[in-house]
Design a protein around this nucleic acid. Sequence first.
DNA 1: CGGCAATTAAAACAAACGTTTGACTTATTT
DNA 2: AAATAAGTCAAACGTTTGTTTTAATTGCCG
Lengths: 210, 210
Amino acid sequence: MDKSTTKQRLLDVAEKLFADSGYHCTSLRKITAEAGVNLASVSYHFGSKEALVEAIFERRLRPLNEERLGRLEAVRADAAAAGRKPTAEEALRAFIEPTLRFRDSAPGARYFLHLIGRALTEPDDAVRSIFFRMVGPLFALLFEVLTETLPNLSRNQVFWRLNFAIGAISRCTFLPEKLPVVPPGVELEPSPDLQIDMLVGFLVAGMEAS
Amino acid sequence: MDKSTTKQRLLDVAEKLFADSGYHCTSLRKITAEAGVNLASVSYHFGSKEALVEAIFERRLRPLNEERLGRLEAVRADAAAAGRKPTAEEALRAFIEPTLRFRDSAPGARYFLHLIGRALTEPDDAVRSIFFRMVGPLFALLFEVLTETLPNLSRNQVFWRLNFAIGAISRCTFLPEKLPVVPPGVELEPSPDLQIDMLVGFLVAGMEAS
DNA sequence: CGGCAATTAAAACAAACGTTTGACTTATTT
DNA sequence: AAATAAGTCAAACGTTTGTTTTAATTGCCG
């Protein structure tokens, strides 16, 4: 950490603090203090607090989205090559597997997952817009593929079931440390593969419900 | 609105503004200005900004939670009286129907639903604690009933499926005005009954998935 | 009407915020 | 080695925040 540049330390520390306490509850003074850099360096390297959080999203979300987009297009292409429609499970796995495996893909990636778990309900318009702009095309493609896989459902039904699914997925990328109730015997941080299986099993059944 | 007391105007206006822009992005000056009351009246009537948001939660969430608790206990009692286990659909409807019908139950109730839709990921520890303290017993009971209805699932599986369900439900109580993608032909605000049917159909299938 | 408590009003409080400034140091280039 | 660029630093900027203070006003009861 000490050998990295100021810019990268800012990205790493801000990512963690934003994930812990949210955008507005995290001041630039907290970030720069914990990073051991000067307060003005945020302005120098990024221009503003908002540009800092945008850079954080850009760094992690761009490669993640490219992977999910590629997987989704591959699902579509494979099915077309085989002369069939893709299945709901294929479409959902193309989105979910990269997302949940992302947690252990890099140091600090788990903090970023926490951050995007809160992005759907982010109170700040500017910050939410940054996120929505980046995931918009991905959600649109996922919606299109799902309408193909579920021809018996209206577009409205697919839209809402996709919304339900996104809500369920976000509970895997963001579980607050203080839960209202944690019964004994539950695993708060299952392995990505186990979590994927639980989530896909749940969502495929919900998506294909008659 | 003009005839109501200062205290109630503060509750109504703050509820709406907190729902629109979140707790931290809404200043007491915005609230008191829009309510047409003096800034110091928040301190006088409630004591602090945090106590104000707690009063907002208290006012709406207490009766809503009592209704959901009552319905859940009734589901349990009815099944026991009939010598059978409750079904997952009964348990989920006991929670979901009061929640989604709450939107049209009173003026301003829709704003409060927006507010609790964000409460799960609220960045402020104190505000999130207020919410979690109020819904904790309810979630605990819902978890217990669901473990009874799904004897083939481990407690860990029930816990996570309940989490998925809560995430899906929260997408009905909070849909941001600016969505990443809104395909043509979707109904962004369906009637409570239609939304309940869509949600229950989705969640029962997911809950009971093998 | 007079008096007391409840409420509202205007002003000021200290603290924290994001941002900017200008001097200083380090690194790179010519 | 000189000159230019890049980066860091402490300090201060003006604004906004939640909260407090003190005075004025209102409403109610004897």
